[in-house]
């Protein structure tokens, strides 16, 4: 299977003044196959949204390569990409559904917009396509005439999803798409994503904090910590047997309704390290890692294969 998306040593550093650089995404490498669903999880602020905005070419990378089916996208300026034919091949559902909708567009206009622009559809065909998309995403048709401020958070999220799948992209990037959804609609959306994957062979990069959802939906999972991928592997194996101490802490913090299941919780102490000019010889997790040994502050662990199909960036994984 040739990769649909091939990311190599991708980096984004923001200038935060006084010659200081914030390493938001640091030399990240991974691939996504056709029809594959890859989950991206990690601490708030670790660089997930920056990474997906680089891939979707809303941000220009500092260095590295982004190839979509063999075509290099990294050299193209973000602005030029808007008019590029590859534009329709990658679509994105944004983290803040509310913010990313034009306040003067009704839900119907918002969904119709990319179809009109990228697929040149209009009139009755456009209208019925919009209605079909509303049905698919579980958005009641009577809400189509409403403006964003008249919709609840979850209703707006559904408009965002309908809009992104409207042009049937090859790669759909979803940045916390289900965060604002209630569990019932979430089920509808997750099943819809799975169905589109089977029918259209769509690939997904799925950013989420809901690890239970990632476990159910994704084939493979990438775990990020402070700009770096610290672990990757098939979803089922990664959840059953996490190799990196951060992944272990993350999985153990999943909320549990059943008090008996809360035993043996890992609570991370210590202060998180700064993403601004981080020390290149210290493990990013050092200081909070329950293990942390002298070697961890003298040598940065690299992402290496620790078992078949599994990688981790820890000296002791």
């Amino acid at each position: 299977m040739t990769a649909l998306l091939d990311i190599a040593e991708l980096a984004k550093r923001f200038d935060v003044g006084n010659k200081r650089l914030l390493h938001a995404v640091d030399e990240v490498t991974f691939t996504i196959g056709r029809g594959e669903t890859v989950g991206l999880v990690g601490e708030s602020g670790c660089g997930k949204s920056t990474l997906v905005r680089l891939i979707n070419r809303l941000l220009d990378p500092t260095s590295g390569s982004i190839r979509l089916a063999g075509t290099e996208l990294a050299d193209m300026r973000a602005r030029a990409f808007a008019g590029n034919p590859n534009r329709a091949r990658i679509q994105m559902v944004f983290q803040d559904a509310g913010d990313s909708l034009n306040p003067r567009y009704t839900a119907a206009d918002a969904i119709a917009d990319p179809i009109r622009r990228l697929k040149k559809m209009s009139g009755a065909a456009l209208k019925s396509r919009v209605e079909a998309l509303a049905d698919m995403t579980g958005l009641p048709r009577e809400l189509l005439t409403r403006f964003p401020h008249q919709l609840s958070g979850g209703q707006k999220a559904r408009v965002g999803i309908a809009r992104a799948i409207a042009v049937e992209p090859e790669l759909l990037i979803l940045d916390e798409p289900t965060a604002a959804l209630d569990v019932s609609v979430q089920v509808v959306i997750l099943k819809l994503l799975q169905q589109l994957k089977h029918e259209l062979g769509m690939s997904y990069l799925f950013v989420s904090h809901d690890l239970n959802v990632v476990r159910l939906l994704c084939d493979r999972v990438l775990v990020m910590y402070l700009g770096k991928i610290v672990e990757s592997g098939p979803a089922a194996e990664l959840f059953a047997d996490p190799k990196h101490p951060y992944t272990r802490a993350l999985i153990s913090a999943i909320p549990q309704a059943d008090p008996d299941k809360r035993v043996g919780r890992l609570r991370l102490g210590g202060e998180p390290r700064s993403p601004i000019d981080p020390d290149p010889t210290v493990c990013r997790f050092y200081g909070r890692c329950p293990r942390g040994e002298p070697r961890c502050s003298a040598e940065m662990p690299v992402l290496r294969t620790v078992a078949p199909a599994r990688q981790a960036a820890c000296h002791f994984a």
Binding site: P140, V183, S184, V187, V213, L216, A257
Partner: peptide, 25 residues
């Protein structure tokens, strides 16, 4: 029904059931 739609220990998406119908108009 809300509880049954919550992904917890569930092993597959197929096991989760959305709540049929929608809110009334």
């Amino acid at each position: 029904k809300l509880l049954a739609a919550t992904p917890g220990e569930t092993v597959s998406l197929a096991e989760l059931a959305s709540i049929p119908g929608g809110l009334p108009d």
